[in-house]
């Protein structure tokens, strides 16, 4: 499993209950705004974080959302969602649209996150947890 270190990131939100999802969303929204993302992209990024935080809360109970700014040729925002929950048995199926293990859910979360962001990385081990890392580039017009 990939090791996520706090000191490599600019911001950390602990997900413990449903209200923390809103907190995570708000913080990433402010972060993206400061980085100069367009309104449409800010909405996409915070929606993606909302999905990731929701997954942490729903399946693992608790976990962390890490946020940082990557500066290279193009500025990008990187978000890592980490938990030590039950893990995902079939990762490939989980990122397909329509896959869900819980009743009343659309099963669009992870597949949606993949489409909302530019890059999508997932690693999961049963009984050890899940790491999802996503990035989005800031487009300059």
């Amino acid at each position: 499993m990939r090791d996520i270190k706090m000191e490599d990131y600019d911001m950390l939100v602990k997900i413990n209950d449903e209200r923390d999802i809103v907190v995570a969303r708000q913080m990433v929204k402010d972060f993206a705004k400061r980085m100069g993302f367009s309104l449409a992209d800010i909405t996409k990024i915070s929606t993606a974080v909302s999905e990731l935080a929701r997954n942490i809360f729903r399946y693992a109970g608790s976990g962390f959302i890490y946020i940082r700014e990557n500066t290279g040729e193009e500025k990008e925002i990187e978000i890592a969602a980490v938990d030590k929950g039950p893990g995902i048995e079939n990762v490939e199926a989980a990122v397909e649209a329509g896959f869900t293990t819980s009743k009343g859910s659309l099963g669009l979360g992870l597949s949606g996150v993949r489409r909302l962001m530019d890059s999508f990385f997932i690693e999961s081990e049963v009984n050890r947890g899940t790491v999802v890392i996503v990035t989005k580039r800031r487009r300059t017009f």
């Binding site: 449409a40 800010i42 909405t43 996409k44 929606t47 659309l106 669009l108 949606g112 489409r115 909302l116």
Partner: peptide
Amino acid sequence: IKPSIAHTLVKLGV
């Protein structure tokens, strides 16, 4: 539905 939300909904598949 706001434009930014419209785009997000399409991406999500809702």
